[in-house]
Design a protein around this nucleic acid. Sequence first.
RNA 1: GGUGAGGUGGCAGAGCGGCUAUGCGUUCGCCUGCAAAGCGAAUCUAUAGGGGUUCGAAUCCCUUCCUCACCUCCA
Length: 467
Amino acid sequence: MRIFDTLSVTEKELDTSDRVRIYLCGVTVYDDSHIGHTRTIIVFDTLRRFLEFQGIKVEFIQNFTDVDDKIINRAVSENVSADSISSRYIANYFVEFDRLNVKRADVYPKATEHIGDMIGLIKTLIEKNFAYVSSNGVYFSVSKFHEYGKLSKKKTDELVSGARVEVDETKKDPLDFALWKFADGEPRWQSPWGPGRPGWHIECSAMSLKYLGTDFEIHGGGRDLIFPHHENEIAQSEAYSDKNFAKIWMHVGMVTINGEKMSKSLGNTKSVDFVLKKWGANIIRLFCLSGHYSKPIDYAEDMLKETITKWRQVENCYYELVLSDNLQANPEDMTEIERTTNETKKEFIDALNSDFNTSLATSAFFKLVRATNQLAASERLVSSIAGTVLPVLEQMLDILGLKISKVTEEEKNKINDLIDRRNMFRSQKKFQDADAIRKEISDMGIVLIDHKKKVLWMKQERIGAEG
RNA sequence: GGUGAGGUGGCAGAGCGGCUAUGCGUUCGCCUGCAAAGCGAAUCUAUAGGGGUUCGAAUCCCUUCCUCACCUCCA
């Protein structure tokens, strides 16, 4: 599979010969996660599912930044400990991303649990003369790392001339960034240079190195992390190890709202909780995968609504397949559907192999859905066809992380009972009674599909936006 | 100002030298007791403007205009 690498600005072949190690920069746990975090995490979850579907071993690490000024500020304003803030949002994170059907990473390392690793790294950087101690903390000396700027394509002299770099008189160079900050208040940790807290960037270097080693396959995150976070990670890590840090840098585009970037600092975010209540996991996943991962997508309610229509087609398709009559298809239909199934499956996989083009992949997926629904609409969908289509459809659903709402055996029996009663009323032309039953079924979240000679049903996911 | 990514039909979104995806929308229709769901047909022949290369360009080159992101914490 080929993936676009931000560092080399080219598509690179992903080395899957042994295992694929992925480090994804996770969230700072000081507030609710939002749809922007969601997109990045869903993209990587889907990538991981796709690799695993192919039998490739994946080691997936995603960190939590649980020491940060924002966490401390929040703790102060709520008059609680920093730890209680980060624990709360980490707990929320798991609730929400489980609901989004995101597979758990192999490890979710926390910064606070790796202070020792960071100190070790900083020590070496000082020994190698890449870092120095000032009265405020320990700083990385950017000018010592000659490749600084290679990821973000920035030249250090241009960065200096830009007026937006932080002013700190104790730094030797305005570009230098903190590895360790001296601090009086809590939380703080002892270090050889004095008590304090680690800088933001060093945690990812320390934790990726610890869990994945050097030169691992993919390092990812949102585009906004390219500078300075990932640039600084590269500087620290490569200065420390003298080895290449990551083989491929994969960056996910921003989610905008009304064309404007969504971010906590702008205060225009849509929280995961909000979008889950409004749209549900399947719609959000489809939305997040609707465009190429590297490009921005706009959170627009009309687009989300369209996605509901598509999802209904998928639900219909699935239940038509599952509930099809136990019959043999006519040979022409069989040949045709086998061809379509194979073609769409190939299209789907080829698209994902080509820089993870989820937009193309989902369009192949919908082609298969439509072909199936066509057969259903013309009363030609039978079990032998389902036997061909269903396994492929389920594979695609699984890779995309989509989940069809299912019913229990008990509910199924009840539905069939009610359908029988309704049919009876219908045959007696007691349509009001029949409609009352239809309403009762609909209240269970079940929609009836009246075919010419049979009545099928499907479970529809309840979606908040539909009221 | 610097750097990067883009500008494709009413909308979303692929394609990245020839065969102009796909979906949504809209209109009409099929099906139905009526619906719903689904399906069909029609609609839409689009590639920011201007040059060029080529037998042939949305796709390559030049240029103009515009949008967004990053350059401070951010997924």
